[in-house]
Amino acid sequence: MNDKKQSPLLRVKNLRKSFGENVVLKDVSFIMNEGDTKVIIGPSGTGKSTLLTCINQLVRPDSGEIYLKDECITSAENMNRFRQRIGFVFQDFGLFNHLTAKKNIMVGLTKVKKMHKKEAEEIAVEELERVGLMKQADQYPAQLSGGQKQRVGIARALAMQPEIILFDEPTSALDPELIGEVLSVMEDLAENRMTMLIVTHEMGFARTVSDEIIFMEDGVIVEEGSPDKMFKKPDHGRTREFLFKLTELYGEGDE
């Protein structure tokens, strides 16, 4: 699946980040090709979310480089230009409470991409359809369920036509019965070869949908490999231990 010879879409090289004494990322490197779905797993507090926020520079890394295609993000003067190209889906949705579902999606198009209102509305409607929320277009975030909110969050990211979308535990704040609707939207995206980097504890999703799983612990990538390898014969004892624990906790998912 990763046999394309073109330059990678995203390259993360020797990324380091500490908050005070606490070293969160110690020398993290990996690449993502176009169309890849990669899942990052690992115990909490091991820098997974920090890694994502470093990629779109919501948090500035201390050192290391990140390239989007051939452009260096970490040395960019104007980060806003890159952020438009990198979608972000948050654990707690981050919807704008004073705007309807549709306007949540439109605001990035009209204010950042300076698109005309009409054109933005067409795109918003399209994306709402894609995540199955046409009926909720004119509802406000407080009127939506958690699963619906997160689907609006995904639609908002998609509308910007990003080259990659980062998901930071997109289902962790959801009631169990609402997780499925969000995962199925993400599965559709994976099928359509959207490039996605996902931090999640959903093992079923990781196993069946991702191209590759990255196991992170204590700020380093312990191991990286296909789901098959990671679940069946990982190189490291820690990987096996962790996956065993998670699988026990969350089940194997819908294999």
Partner: peptide, 28 residues
């Protein structure tokens, strides 16, 4: 704060985020 973070993640400048996202809610 998450709304500010989300606005910035869409590529809004701080000023755009304040004007379009924070101010309308703060006024209310």
């Amino acid at each position: 704060e998450q709304q500010m973070v989300a606005a910035r993640s869409l590529g809004m400048t701080q000023r755009e985020a304040i004007w379009n996202i924070i101010l309308p809610q703060a006024v209310r």
